[in-house]
C-alpha cells in the first residue's frame, strides 16, 4: 500500500556551485525539497542571489558518502615526512643548476610554458 506522508516532502539536498569556468565546484549549503527538480529550482535563489554562478549541482544527502566523525579525526592526519612528494625535497637542484649556469625548472617557469612563441 502506498501512503503520502507530508513529512517526506522535506528531503535533504546538498547544494554545490561553480562561480566561474576556472573555479572548482564549491559547497554552498543544504536545503529541503521533495525531489531533484524542485531542489534545483530552489538552489540558486536560496544561496547565490548575490554572487556569480555558472553551474549548480544538487545532490540528495543520502547519496553522499562523507567521512564519519571518527574517519575525519583519524584519516586526515599525516606524518610530516613527505617532502619527496613535493618540490621541497628537490630544492638542492637549484644550486646544482646554477653551477652549470642553467636555471631551475621551478613551478613558475613550468607554468609559464602555456604561452609558446609562434615563430
Amino acid at each position: 500500500m502506498t501512503a503520502q506522508d507530508e513529512s517526506n516532502f522535506y528531503k535533504e539536498y546538498e547544494v554545490f556551485s561553480k562561480r566561474s569556468t576556472k573555479a572548482p565546484i564549491q559547497h554552498q549549503f543544504s536545503l529541503l525539497a521533495p525531489n531533484d527538480e524542485l531542489a534545483m529550482m530552489m538552489a540558486q535563489e536560496n544561496f547565490m542571489r548575490r554572487e556569480d554562478v555558472i553551474d549548480v549541482w544538487v545532490v540528495p544527502r543520502a547519496h553522499i558518502r562523507s567521512m564519519t566523525s571518527e574517519e575525519r579525526s583519524t584519516w586526515t592526519k599525516r606524518l610530516d615526512n613527505k617532502s619527496y612528494r613535493t618540490t621541497k625535497g628537490y630544492g638542492y637542484l637549484r644550486k646544482k643548476w646554477r653551477e652549470k649556469e642553467q636555471g631551475m625548472l621551478d613551478e613558475k617557469e613550468i607554468m609559464s610554458w602555456k604561452e609558446v612563441n609562434k615563430s
Binding site: 500500500m1 502506498t2 501512503a3 503520502q4 506522508d5 507530508e6 513529512s7 517526506n8 516532502f9 528531503k11 521533495p34 525531489n35 524542485l38
Partner: peptide
Amino acid sequence: RWVRQALAPQVISS
C-alpha cells in the same frame, strides 16, 4: 498542506 502532501514522495509501506 495540500501542496506538501501532493509532492511528498510516495512511500511503499507493507
